[in-house]
Design a protein around this nucleic acid. Structure first.
Length: 857
RNA sequence: GGACGAUUGGCUCAGCGGUAGAGCACCACAUUGACAUUGUGGGGGUCACUGGUUCGAUCCCAGUAUCGUCCA
């Protein structure tokens, strides 16, 4: 318990690496599954193995660390479990890009070699983000670090696949799926991003003469795959044509005109082409009406099999050529160009998605999604903030079956084997396929394994101690942007795999970090910021505090470097205040003196501390990070530094401050504890230095002491603050320099007068005998001063007139209310009393100020 | 097209049925001690618009406008 000296100034880089290493080495982050303490569990939203720490991670992780550290201090067995996601497409793309630089494709290497290459890459440069998490100060349990492609997590994947398959919740079917012609794989609905693109809307006449119909399309190139034309069954324009056939131009095939409810008669001409193999809506209609599937494009999005001149053209090239040809044939009735409409793009490479008829594996989501919705509906799982719950319901209640097969090599290979005679078997963990069987070449969607994260990371399907202790997890903290991608899927699989126990108790959704003007960060805009640069420049605590302070539930936040600098200033403030306290003998040793024995200043700060502790703890516990940060910031800076330390300086200077030394020590000790979850580094350094304790990480969370609440002390200090502020203002108006000492005295009731010397000390007044030349009145309290020279009458008059105007205005608004019969009759008593008090106070002010103005001559 | 949210000082955002708040920015003064990564004082908003409810509306309700996000 040897106390150390505090360095003269706060340099984050001097303390952060040392403290983090110490925490890890001491095992403070490691959770104990055999502990009798109540568990608190958070699993990290696993960053991509290809990823770098971006500002969104910094926010997400700051909030998680805040909660984890607070709960740990509150006596929970806190586990924050870290790990990474293998990120199928993203990772495969990165490694393929590296190969491309050498002029190679993955096919040159072959599947086995390629996958080996990805693992190698993962080992050497993947997981950079883990190092970056350490810079941020994340108190994650490194001994439990997980990776979706690890052995145990892969076992979990096999287990659940088989379980779902056995319950007929996984099936294989030929459907229209989203296809990326560049990645050459199927995509799920949510891996498709819709953008408003400029296209064209061409109306084409099918058939001739009487037997003709005009269809409008944005995708003319697919017309060669048309199997029908569809109209709404009630559309009067086309009644006579339903059931007949028209000629399909270019390929000169007769196709039927069918009637289907799906057609919107108000859209375009009310007649649409039905291209069963190349459009999901058309597919549905085609199934209903037995329309043939005509495939006219290969997997690269190149026209193929039409038997026309267009074969071999890229789809976009073909679109132009087809329209040109139709024009030539006189079949184009109208053209709208540009025509803005929503087009799907691959979320990984931005290529325009091509709907493609193909055989894929699907999860039948209806029963799973129902359960996922119900868990929130019946309150077993809470979504914070509540406003975002409708979005969740909208999605889980209207979810399509989930396409889970991907034509990739990097990922969990689908555990389905096909026999020589068309047998299909699913090979679970520990099982093997019979000889002569071949495994499905595809892998599973990355989100399939991510959906298992809350329990696969705890050892499931094995009934591990971790699983028993830490499942279900307490809170899931993540951005609202992956509510659908990830959260809903964890809910579905968690409920399914864990016998109806949802994977978490509360889903805490935060927003996105935007630039200082509230614009979305993007590489193309060049407004992306690097959290590591900020950590280097201002320290991790400053970045964390800024992010927490900006984090209102479910809302995006703007971030500017200036705000981070402001947080760094706050850290510096804490540092300097602690140095000052230590210089003046603040201590945590010995009992806190009985509150009755303390002066009002000490009573006041203890009261404020209790209030702050209560508010702050409540706010953090309800995920109100911004408001919590605001509360603690103002307590530390305003109450503690600007007022308490200032008001106590006289006591310290007089050498008679034993109680205050102890109170200050107590307040600092508690403040460090409260701030530790958000600013772990500086608080650890200050606390261990100041108290000589081993670590703040395991110190107990402050408890509100109601016996410290003291309204009368608060009222008294409020009075002192008013007096001080008014006298300062007077000095300022009179041009008296802040450092200049002038004679002064207070004429005040005893309870205020008692603190004359404290006030005089910070107002730079000398309590000596003198003849007053000026005075400041604050209600019943008067401060007389000797300006030893001419008072600036004009400045004084200006000020008094301004005060008078304000008082008169306030009186007027109060009297309007009091003269309003409706108000007097219906307003609650306490409000009326308040207005009456205001009337009395402003009346007194007006009298006083008027008298002062008259005295000025 | 559907849904949700937003509109408050120069900027970014809190708040809320009873005299408008913060941070940053701005103006003035101050540098022999905790802190210029500072202190003190100050200026600045008819709370998008139009109606309604109410004794009282920035806050509740309806409509309008603009912006944003998600879904189709």
């Amino acid at each position: 318990m040897t106390k150390r000296e505090l360095a003269p100034s706060f340099i984050p880089a001097d303390i952060e690496p040392r403290l983090y290493q110490h925490w890890v080495d001491s095992g403070y982050f490691t959770a104990d599954s055999s502990s009798p303490k109540e568990p608190f569990t958070i699993v990290i939203p696993p960053p991509n193995v290809t990823g770098n720490l971006h500002i969104g991670h910094a926010l997400d992780q700051t909030l998680q660390d805040c909660l984890t550290r607070m709960k740990r201090m509150q006596g929970y067995e806190a586990l924050w479990l870290p790990g990474m996601d293998h990120a199928g497409i993203a990772t495969q793309n990165v490694v393929e890009k590296q190969l491309a630089a050498q002029g190679l494709t993955r096919h040159d290497l072959g599947r086995e070699e390629f996958v080996k290459k990805v693992w190698e890459w993962k080992a050497e440069s993947g997981g950079q983000i883990l190092g970056q998490m350490k810079r941020l100060g994340d108190s994650v349990d490194w001994s439990r670090e997980a990776f979706t492609m690890n052995e145990t997590l892969s076992q979990a994947v096999l287990t659940i696949f088989k379980k779902l398959y056995d319950q007929e919740l996984i099936y294989r079917a030929e459907r229209i799926i989203n296809w990326c012609p560049r990645c050459l794989t199927a995509l799920s609905d949510i891996e498709v991003e819709h953008q408003d693109d400029e296209g064209e809307f061409v109306s084409v006449r099918y058939g001739d003469g009487e037997q003709s119909i005009v269809v409008a399309t944005t995708r003319a190139e697919t017309m060669m795959g048309d199997g029908a034309v569809a109209v709404h069954p009630d559309d009067p324009r086309y009644q006579h044509m339903i059931g007949t056939e028209v000629l399909l131009p270019l390929v000169n095939r007769m196709i039927p005109i069918i009637a289907d409810e799906l057609v919107d008669p108000d859209f375009g001409t009310g007649a649409v082409k039905v291209t069963a193999a190349h459009d999901p809506n058309d597919f549905e209609m085609a199934v209903r009406h037995n329309v043939p599937f005509v495939v006219i494009m290969n997997e690269h999005g190149v026209m193929d099999g039409t038997g026309t001149e267009f074969d071999g053209m890229d789809r976009f090239e073909a679109r132009v050529a087809v329209v040109a040809k139709l024009k030539e044939l006189g079949r184009v009735v109208a053209e709208k160009r540009p025509y803005i409409h929503a087009v799907g793009h691959c979320s990984r490479c931005d290529t325009t998605v091509e709907p493609r008829l193909s055989k894929q594996w699907f999860v039948k989501v209806a029963p799973l999604a129902k359960a996922a919705g119900d868990a929130v509906r019946d309150g077993r799982v809470k979504i914070e903030p509540e406003e975002l719950a409708p979005r969740y319901f909208e999605w889980v209640d209207g979810m399509h079956d989930w396409c889970i097969s991907r034509q990739l090599w990097w990922g969990h290979r689908i555990p389905v084997w096909y026999g020589p005679n068309g047998e299909v078997i699913v090979v679970g963990p520990g099982e093997s396929a019979p000889a002569g069987y071949e495994q499905d070449p595809d892998v599973l969607d990355t989100w399939f394994s991510s959906a298992l994260w809350p329990f696969s990371t705890l050892g499931w399907p094995n009934q591990t101690e971790d699983l028993k202790k830490f499942y279900p997890t307490s809170v899931l903290v993540t951005g609202y942007d992956i509510l659908f991608f990830w959260v809903a899927r964890m809910m579905m699989f968690g409920l399914f795999a864990m016998d109806g126990v949802p994977p978490f108790g509360t889903i805490v959704l935060h927003g996105l970090v935007r630039d200082q003007f509230g614009k979305k960060m993007s590489k193309s805009k060049g407004n992306v910021v690097d959290p590591l640069e900020f950590i280097d420049k201002y320290g991790a605590d400053a970045l964390r505090f800024t992010l927490a302070r900006g984090s209102n539930p479910g809302k995006d936040q703007a971030l500017a470097e200036d705000w981070i600098a402001g947080s760094r200033n706050f850290a510096t403030k804490l540092w300097n205040a602690t140095r000052f306290a230590m210089m003046n003998g603040a201590t945590v040793e010995g009992d806190l003196p009985a509150v009755d024995s303390l002066n009002a200043i000490d009573k006041w700060i203890l009261s404020r501390l209790s209030e702050t502790t209560a508010q702050y703890t409540e706010l953090l516990s309800t995920y109100e990070f911004a408001r919590a940060s605001e509360v603690i910031y103002h307590f530390a800076w305003d109450d503690l530094c600007d007022w308490y330390l200032e008001l106590s300086k006289e006591a310290f200077a007089s050498g008679n401050a034993q109680s205050t030394q102890r109170v200050l020590g107590f307040v600092l000790d508690q403040l460090f504890r409260l701030l530790h979850p958000v600013m772990p580094f500086i608080t650890e350094e200050l606390w261990t230095t100041f108290t000589g304790g081993e670590t703040l990480m395991n110190a107990s969370w402050p408890i509100v002491d109601v016996s410290h609440l003291d309204k009368s002390a608060e009222e008294l200090i409020t009075q002192l603050q008013r007096v001080i502020t008014e006298v300062r203002r007077f000095r300022n108006d009179q041009g008296v320099k802040p450092s200049q000492k002038i004679p002064g005295r207070f004429i005040a009731p005893a309870d205020v007068a008692q603190y004359s010397s404290a006030m005089a000390f910070l107002l730079k007044l000398e309590l000596v005998d003198f003849t007053a030349s000026a005075s400041v009145e604050i209600g019943a309290i008067k401060c007389e001063l000797d300006l030893s020279g001419a008072v600036d009458v004009e400045a004084e008059r200006t000020r008094l007139e301004k005060d008078l105007a304000t008082a008169k205005k306030d009186l007027a608004t109060a009297e309007v209310k009091l003269n309003n019969q409706g108000f007097m009759a219906k307003a609650p008593e306490n409000v009326v009393a308040e207005i009456r008090e205001r009337q009395a106070a402003t009346t007194a002010d007006i009298e006083r100020i008027t008298a002062q103005l008259a005295a000025l001559k």
